[in-house]
């Protein structure tokens, strides 16, 4: 208040001019907020439209069903990368989902204990660790001791990338479950673990699945952690590995134990090659990847919106 009166008395602008200037500033600044919002949407639209334009012509059946053709040759596909991404993501999901959900249960049920706070904080910080550093960790943890690159190392690295997303969304969803449900179950004599797994988890399932989906979208889109864990392998083909005809354990072992590839990794390599066919395929892979990731995000949005509606009614 005192500063206002001081500036009032010091200034020589007549009251009406001051009023107009304040409103002019107001209009300009509020206009700028809208302007910058539109500005930020330009790259989003530009990327989506361009990737569709450049990628769509190269989307062929062959792209999804064939291994790469020789350098400079037309045709061939990225089957190796699709299979690699599937293997790595599946493994990462198997590793990260139980850990993530159980950790979320701990954090949600122990919100104000030192360990609960530390884990929440640790999860947030883990989400901020650059993915390339997590790739280095995967290298040090698995590639170095084993002496070779493998799908296993990539799966572990991607699992660590997915973990924070799973923990945080699951925690939020568990917290949304009405406490009365939990108390009701406990009052009926159910032990804590049964309450958690049979009452709280089903009630929160919609949100938990959403969290999984977002985590998978994040994991599939990552490149940096794959660079020196799975390395790349353009002859990777599960079909041939399975035809080898040993026991299931041996097959799984062979699937996980060799270097593999990924869609993002293939994109990165193809983008740097001087062959136009390869660059074209990079755009096609970008399109597939983008549609997958954006599709999952849209689906997750719809799911949450629906569960919120249900909760409100």
């Amino acid at each position: 208040m005192t500063t206002m009166t001081r500036t009032l008395s010091r200034s020589s602008i007549p009251a009406k001019g001051r009023y107009q200037r304040r409103h002019a500033v107001n209009a300009v600044m509020l206009g700028l907020t809208g302007f910058f919002t539109l500005l930020a949407l330009i790259p989003l639209v530009w990327i989506i439209v361009y990737v569709i334009q450049a990628g769509a012509p190269a989307i062929t059946l062959e792209l999804f069903t064939k291994l790469p053709a020789g350098l400079g040759q037309v045709g061939g596909g990225v089957l190796h990368a699709i299979e690699g991404t599937l293997v790595v993501t599946l493994l990462a999901s198997i590793l990260s989902m139980p850990v993530g959900v159980l950790t979320a249960f701990y954090v949600a049920t122990h919100p104000n204990t030192p360990l609960g706070l530390a884990v929440r904080f640790g999860t947030d910080v883990l989400a901020g660790v650059p993915s390339i550093v997590i790739g280095l960790f995967g290298y040090a943890l698995i590639v170095l001791p084993q002496g070779h690159y493998s799908a296993l190392a990539g799966g572990v690295a991607i699992a660590i990338i997915m973990l924070p997303t799973i923990i945080r969304t699951t925690e939020e969803m568990i917290k949304l479950v009405p406490n009365a449900m939990r108390e009701g179950s406990l009052a009926l004599g159910a032990p804590e673990w049964k309450t958690s797994l049979r009452v709280i988890l089903p009630a929160a399932l919609n949100g938990v699945v959403t969290g999984f989906m977002l985590a998978i979208a994040r994991g599939v889109g990552e490149t940096a952690p794959l660079l020196f864990t799975v390395l790349g392998n353009d002859r990777y083909d599960i079909g041939q590995i399975v035809q080898g005809g040993q026991s299931i354990g041996a097959i799984v072992n062979r699937i996980l134990d060799q270097p593999t590839d990924g869609l993002t990794l293939t994109m990165w390599k193809y983008a740097q090659q001087p062959f136009p066919e390869r660059v074209q395929q990079a755009w096609a892979v970008a399109l597939v990847l983008m549609l997958f990731v954006l599709g999952i995000n849209i689906l997750a949005r719809v799911l949450t919106a629906r569960s919120q509606l249900k909760g409100n009614s």
Binding site: Y50, V51, T264, W268, L289, M290, N297
Partner: peptide, 24 residues
């Protein structure tokens, strides 16, 4: 929708940004 579009921008894989970056 606007919140969603801002989230979309964050969800686009980094390598797609890179490809678009090089050529466009």
């Amino acid at each position: 929708p606007l919140n969603f579009m801002v989230e979309m921008l964050a969800a686009i894989p980094s390598v797609v940004f890179g490809l678009w970056g090089i050529f466009v």
